[in-house]
Design a protein around this nucleic acid. Structure first.
Lengths: 200, 200
DNA sequence: GTCTATATTGCGATAGAC
DNA sequence: GTCTATCGCAATATAGAC
């Protein structure tokens, strides 16, 4: 066994905290799920709170590999497409991440602040640069503003995942819309919305 | 005083549940905030759980007046503009609503299911109809699909509010983007993205 | 490293005085 | 209607045996 009890505890914690939130999950539940006992949480992590922070860190670490792309040689459109594609990969590899993010939207914790934030700022700069380049190069409309357009883009691609669980219940008669199909459709509309038009 | 203790308890509950979530808030905290005592929660609502449900109902009721628009005589674009404008009003009047919704996205409760869902379904039908009309009338592109386009639209307008708290922290150097300015910009891009183009 | 047993705290709910 | 006091329970954290 050794200290892979520690790993099992961390995995159980990620699972349970994501599903039910910090306060709704007891250390006994986590220990049971990890097939050990609650004393091991203090032993390995110090406290329930520290275990939660370790779970957040683990989720954030899983993001890291995705958030260091080289975009200098990409066209502006390719930067946005890359972002959409990366997001797909993140959510496939990391299905619990979204639940953490939802809770952090409701009440951001100190850990979210310091850890995720810097990375999101990097993404912001990257996309802002691509958008500006597109405008300068005459690919995108000159009358679009950077910040609102990026918020719009972030909303388009992220909201799909946020609302995914609810689609079936909000519109039972509509057949499900697959991830890839949605992203393709969204990109089509987004690019059509911001592209520069030839004067008629 | 009379039973406006009941009202004070409900208001305190909405405030605290929104800010910290159901499990993180104790009935003693709520009672203190409402300047009464925890026994009154049982007296008026039966239990903490029932008080939470009353808080959800109160939020949902605040939505109701907004969700019964007459849209038959509006153009397709006007239906979408009306939706965006309604959302603005909802969030101005109801600043805690979003936190409830975030938590429900993470882990939907039984109440959310039965209460909010029907209303969202109505909104879905309303917007789907407007979109189809726009396509049939040749205003919108014939190659857009209903469901992905509505998810995109919902993402565009709702994500602004979801992410609002984070804008400052993700991009401190960018000046804030006002609600009205964002909505106008988003609608501009959305309509440009789905409008039917004359062949060149 | 692992586990049981336990100390301590705080919870939700309620009985009963006023 | 309102409040205090308290019951019973479950929580986290930890001491100490192995």
């Amino acid at each position: 066994m050794e200290d892979d009890s520690k790993q099992r505890l961390l995995q159980a914690a990620i699972q349970l905290f994501a599903a039910h939130g910090f306060e709704s999950v007891s250390i006994r539940q986590i220990a049971k799920e990890a097939e050990t006992n609650s004393a091991m949480i203090s032993y390995y992590f110090g406290s329930k709170q520290k275990l939660y922070e370790a779970a957040i860190d683990a989720q954030a670490a899983a993001l890291h590999e995705f958030l260091t792309p080289k975009t200098a040689e990409l066209t502006p459109q390719e930067v946005f497409l890359r972002y959409a594609h990366t997001l797909q990969k993140i959510h496939v590899c990391n299905p619990t991440l979204l639940q953490f993010i939802c809770r952090e939207f409701a009440a951001p914790s100190a850990h979210f602040e310091t850890f995720i934030q810097k990375r999101l700022h990097q993404v912001f700069l990257l996309l802002a640069d691509a958008l500006q380049r597109g405008i300068d190069e005459g690919i995108f409309r000159p009358d679009i503003e950077i910040v609102p357009t990026l918020v719009l883009w972030a909303g388009m691609v992220n909201f799909y995942y946020l609302s995914r669980n609810l689609h079936q219940r909000i519109s039972p008669e509509a057949q499900a819309c697959s991830e890839a199909a949605y992203m393709e459709h969204a990109c089509k509309i987004f690019f059509a919305g911001i592209e520069r038009r030839p004067a008629p």
